[in-house]
Nucleic acid binder design. Structure first.
Lengths: 348, 348
DNA sequence: TTTAGCACTCACTTAATAAGAGTGCTAACT
DNA sequence: AGTTAGCACTCTTATTAAGTGAGTGCTAAA
C-alpha cells in the first residue's frame, strides 16, 4: 500500500465525513496539496476500489469509503493514539469537575445520566452508558426487608454508591428478627467483597457461622443465594436518540425503525458494552462488524470507565459509519475519564 | 349537530384510522349502511368542515379528521366508558397475573419496565410509565451510609418496594454511630408516613426527641432535610420508540427528530404524566392540545395506577393522532389495572 | 509514470402530459 | 325541504421525455 494512496484514502474519508457526498477525482485533485491531475487520482482510486477500501454507489459516481476503508483508517488513528501519552486532559478535567461538584447532590444513576447527556451533546450521536456490573461491585451493606408474607426486598448497597434492589419470593415466611440477624451476619462476613466472590463462598461461610442455629441454616442459604443472584450485566442508559435522526444516511424511516429497534432491544448493545470492559482503550465496531444486522449501518464505539479493582462500566456512542472517528474517540476518552473521576470520588 | 352527521363523522374517523388515507364522499356512500348518495354526504361533509371537525389536505381531496374532530369523537367514547361498570377485566387479570407471578423475582423497576413493554406491544405505540412519586410514597426504612468523609449515601426504602438513593454532600463529617442512631430514630418516627408528610414534621419531631443530644441536633436536622428533599416527580420509563417510526404520518425524518427530542427531554411528558394522577380515568391530549409544540402531531394518553393511599404513578402511550382511541384506551386501562395489581401485592 | 482528451454512464432535474379521485354547484326529483 | 344526478373544475400523483452535469474508464501522448 502506497503512501500516496494512503493519503488519498485519508482525504476521501475526511471529505466524505464532512460532506456526506461521494467525492470525485476532480474535486480531490483540487483539494490535495500535492499537485496531481484528476486522471492520476483516478488511477489510484481504481486501486483503492480493487482493495475494497472505497466504492461507488453507482457507476460514474464519486467514491465513498467502505466499512473496510473506515477500519483501515481507524486502525491508523488508534495506533497513533496508543503512542502518545495523554496525562494532560485529566488535569483540566479535575478542575472542571471540581467546579461542578457543588452543583447538586445526585443519585448514583444521575451521575451516569449526566455523563450520557454530555457525551451525546458533544458527539452529536446517541450515547450509551452501562452502569457498573453488579457482579464485580463490592458490597457495602445488605438489607433484608419483609414486604409481604412470602416476599423479601433485598437491597444491596455497593461501595461505589450504587444501590440495587430486588424482590425475592418464598414459600415459607422468614421472621423479621431472622432477617435482621441474617443481614447483619452477611454484612460482617462480606463487606468489601464482590458479589461474585460472595456467591462462591456463601454456603461455606454461612455453614461455618456458629451464630446461625442449625434449623434455620437451610433457609438462610436459600435466601442468601437468591439475594446475591443478580444479573451480571449493568443497566444501559441511552440518550440522544434524536441526534440519529439528523444524519442524511438515515433519512428513510425504515432505517430509523431498525436502529431504534436495536435501541429498544438493548441486547446487542449490552453484549458489546460488556465485551468492551475486558480490553483497554476505545473499542470500535464499524458497520457490518457489528454482530447484529440491525446496526450494520452504524458504528459503535465504547470504552470502559472506573477503576479496575472497584467498579467497571462502559461508555460510548452509536452513530453512522460516517463519523469523525478521531474526534469521537477523544470525546469518549474524555467522558470516560470524567465519569471515572465522578464515580470514584466515593471510594476512599 | 345532527345524528346523521355524527354518524358520518364516526365513519370518516374509523376509516381514516385504518387506512391513513383521506376519505371521499363516494367511498363513504358505499361504506355506509344507511343508503345515501355521495352528493348528500358531500353536503354533510361540507357542514362538518364548517364546524372544523374535518378538513381536506388540499382542494378536492377526501376529508381527514381535525384534532377538534378527534376530540369530539373521543369525548363520546369517554362518556360511554364512564357509564358501564367494568369489573370483569380485573378478574381475568388476576388469573393471568397469578400465572406469571412465579416467573422471576424482579426489581421494582423491572415490574414497571415489563408493563411498559407489554403496553407498547399491544398498542403498537410508544409507551410511557412514570414511577410512583417519591413524595407521596410511604417510608419503610431509611439507611444512612457514609461514603467518604463529606458524603453520605441516603437509601430510602418505601413500603411499595420502591427504593430511592441519593448522595448528600456535607461540610462536616458525621460519625458512623451518629448516622446509625439517626437513621434508627428516623425509622421509628416516620415509618409509614409519606415523604412529604415527613418533610413538614421533620424539625418538630427531631427537636422533641430526647435521645438526640443538643449539640448534634442541628446536624441531624440538616441531614434529615437533605435526605428527604427528593424530587417530587417519578422517573419516566419509555419503551417502543421504534413503533413510532412505522406510521406513515411520521415518514419525514424531521418529524421523527422532533418527537424523539421530546422523548429525550421528558419535560413535557413528565408534566402531563403528573397531571394525570390528579384525575380519575384515562386522560387524553390530542395533537395541538399538547402543551409542547413538539408533540402537536401526536396524541398522548395516560391514566394513573396504584392505589390512592399508598402509591401513585401513571402509565400511557404516545402515538399519532390517528389512533384507534377506543382500543388504546382499553389497553391503557388494562395495563393500569394489571400494574396496580403487580405493585400493590407488596402492600399488606 | 503522469497527464490530457474523449466517449460513456448514470442520477438528478425539469417539464409536460395523462390519469384519477374528489369536490362544489346547479338543477331536477321526491 | 331534503335528496339526488350531472358536470365542470381542482389538485395530486404517476409517467414519460429530455436535458444537465458530475464522474468514470480507457487510450494515447508527454
Amino acid at each position: 500500500m502506497d503512501q500516496r494512496a494512503e493519503h488519498i484514502l485519508d482525504c476521501i474519508i475526511n471529505q466524505y465525513v464532512t460532506t456526506a457526498e461521494p467525492v470525485g477525482s476532480r474535486a480531490l485533485s483540487k483539494l490535495l496539496e500535492m499537485k496531481l491531475s484528476a486522471a492520476t487520482i483516478r488511477n489510484v482510486m481504481s486501486d483503492l476500489t480493487d482493495m475494497e477500501l472505497i466504492c461507488q454507489p453507482y457507476t460514474s459516481a464519486g467514491r465513498i469509503p467502505t466499512d473496510k476503508g473506515y477500519r483501515y483508517f481507524v486502525n491508523k488513528i488508534l495506533a497513533i493514539e496508543e503512542t502518545k501519552e495523554d496525562t494532560k486532559p485529566i488535569k483540566s478535567l479535575q478542575e472542571s469537575t471540581q467546579g461542578q461538584s457543588k452543583q447538586l447532590p445526585q443519585r448514583f444513576e444521575d451521575i451516569l445520566l449526566a455523563a450520557t447527556r454530555e457525551l451525546a451533546q458533544i458527539t452529536n450521536c446517541t450515547s450509551v452508558v452501562m452502569s457498573p456490573q453488579p457482579a464485580v461491585s463490592r458490597l457495602k451493606k445488605i438489607e433484608l426487608i419483609p414486604l409481604s408474607l412470602t416476599q423479601v426486598l433485598v437491597v444491596l448497597i455497593m461501595q461505589s454508591g450504587m444501590v440495587r434492589n430486588k424482590i425475592v419470593h418464598f414459600r415459607e415466611t422468614p421472621s423479621e428478627t431472622f432477617l435482621t440477624r441474617l443481614s447483619h451476619i452477611l454484612c460482617v462476613y462480606f463487606e468489601g467483597r464482590t458479589i461474585s466472590e460472595i456467591r462462591t463462598s456463601l454456603i461455606e461461610k454461612l455453614s461455618q457461622n456458629s451464630e446461625t442455629n442449625q434449623e434455620s441454616l437451610p433457609l438462610a442459604i436459600r435466601l442468601g443465594k437468591k439475594a446475591f443472584d443478580i444479573e451480571d450485566q449493568g443497566d444501559l442508559y441511552i440518550f440522544g436518540r434524536s441526534n440519529i435522526c439528523g444524519f442524511p444516511e438515515f433519512s428513510s424511516q425504515q432505517t430509523l425503525e431498525i436502529i431504534f429497534r436495536a435501541f429498544d432491544d438493548k441486547q446487542a448493545l449490552v453484549s458489546f458494552f460488556s465485551d468492551v470492559m475486558d480490553i483497554e482503550g476505545v473499542q470500535i465496531r464499524i458497520g457490518n462488524e457489528n454482530k447484529t444486522h440491525d446496526l450494520d449501518q452504524c458504528s459503535v464505539l465504547a470504552t470502559s470507565y472506573g477503576n479496575k479493582e472497584n467498579l467497571l462500566g462502559s461508555i460510548g456512542v452509536v452513530g453512522p459509519t460516517r463519523l469523525n472517528y478521531s474526534e469521537v474517540i477523544s470525546a469518549i476518552d474524555y467522558s470516560s475519564q470524567k465519569l471515572s473521576l465522578a464515580v470514584s470520588q466515593f471510594l476512599d
